[in-house]
Structures are given as structure tokens and as C-alpha cells.
Amino acid sequence: MLKQVHFGPSYIPYLLVTPQILITLVFFIWPAGHALYQSLLIEDAFGLSSEFVWFENFEVLFADEHYLGTFKRTIFFSVLVASISMGFSLILAAMADRVIKAAMVYRTLLIWPYAVAPVVAGALWVFMFDPTLGILTYGLSMFGYDWNHKLNGNEAMALVIIAAAWKQVAYNFLFFLAAMQSIPKSLIEAAAIDGAGPVRRFATIVFPLISPTTFFLLVVNIVYAFFDTFGIVHTITQGGPAKATEILVYKVYNDGFVGLDLGGSAAQSVVLMAIVIALTVIQFRYIEKTVEYS
């Protein structure tokens, strides 16, 4: 943590940490504390007076079946985004790991969606699935399927999941490929000599050995689906139709900025913070025992 050899006591280290600490205090600690405090208040409709109500906002929140529905929906959404995106990239990485010479070319062609902003990803997919004009809507109509995500909640959810998973494939692919390439070749060769075919080797050697990476990616993907998909939902569906795609981050924004229910929104923020903290702790406990990547 600290160097064996270091500088003696002086005022310099305080000056050095000042910018970071100042920004953290003003833009992180203070707002988070304020959200905590506000989550214990109920304000009247004009914001003129507020009453301290202890945990009533939370009680209301967890008794509200809309909120519980949003909670379940977010979990459903995250699990599907994580599994679709990780499954797809695991297959591609396993294939790229076999064709080692071309692997880097394929990597270049696969990693760039990482750089696409969630909102932009949303715009691409909403264009392709536009109910009247979209090219994929047209394709589906040739099979007799009538796609309209503006009316059908399940279709809206499917579209949001596809767009979110599409964007995350690049990231997962990169980490899976790096993990597979760090497996010693001698292990694979020994198994091949013993007569194990490619599928058997993948199932009994490669997959177990990359499991730390898989677990790490699972946490990262769930964090991504919980918190970084606001832009996707906002462009594609705005949480609709009839709240079918309203996930937790979207509800915090919507209740706070559109519905102006500050206490309720703050209570939701606090619940989200608890989720992030839990996920970060899981991630860090794991990272202590991490594998080598590059």
C-alpha cells in the first residue's frame, strides 16, 4: 500500500489530494447524504414544507406493487441481457481461440460496439424495428409476424434486451478471448493426446478454467444492465408501453424529474445505492483472487 521508501511529513500530500477530495465531497458524498436525508422526508406538493417521516417512504415503496413489478422486471431484464450477451460472446470467443492467426482480425471487427453510446445503440435498433418503416419489421411481416413494440409490451422488452445485449458483446468477447488465450497450451495438448475432442476439451478444461472470468463478467454485466441502460430505454420505449419496459434507473429519473416525487425518488436512489454497494463488494472480494488477463 505505502512505499517502503517514501517522503517525510509535509503539507504536499494534502495539496495533492485536495482536488479529488473536494470533487468527491461536493459531487458525491454531499448529494448521496442528501438523498439519504431526503428519503426520510415527505414534501408537500409545492415544496414549501417537509415532514420527517422516518422510513415511511421505504414502506410505501415496498408496499407499492408498481415498484415491486419494476424490481422484478429489472432482474428479468438484467439476467436476460447478461446471459444473451455472454452466451453469444462465449461462442464467438471459443471459435476465435481456435483460429489463433486470424483471432486478432476478428477481435478488431468485434470490439468496436463497445464505443457506441447506449443512446446511439437504442437509435440503431429502434430504426430497424420501426413499426411502419423498419427493415426488420418488414422482414418479419414476410413471415406473417406483425411487429409493433409501441403497442406490445413483450416486443418492447425484447427490443430493449436485444439492443442492450448487442452493445455488451464486444466487452464480453474481449475478456473471454483473453482468458482463453491465457490457458497453458500444454493442458489442451495433453487432453488432445488423451483423445478428447474439441467439444469435450471445451467443456472439461477451457470452461472450468475461465470460470473466474465468467463470474467477473456476470457481475459487470448485471451492473451494466442495472445502471448503464438508461439511454437505451429512454430512446427506444421511454419505459412504455404501459410501463412494460420501466426499469429501476428509469423509474428514479421518471418519478424524480417528471413526476416530481422527491422523497419517493430519493428512497429509490437509496435502494439503488445499496444494490451498487452490494455488487461492488462482490466484485472486489472476487478481484482479490483474480486471474491474470493479458
Binding site: F27, F28, W30, P31, A32, H34, A35, Q38, F227, D228, F230, V249, V252, Y253, G256, F257, L262, S265, A266, S269, L272, M273, V276, I277, T280
Partner: peptide, 11 residues
């Protein structure tokens, strides 16, 4: 632990 999404209003 505090992404902007979870503390938007106070920030």
C-alpha cells in the same frame, strides 16, 4: 459506488 444514475436529483 455512486454512479450518477443513483444520485441524479441531489447532484
Amino acid at each position: 459506488m455512486l454512479p450518477v444514475e443513483v444520485r441524479i436529483i441531489p447532484t
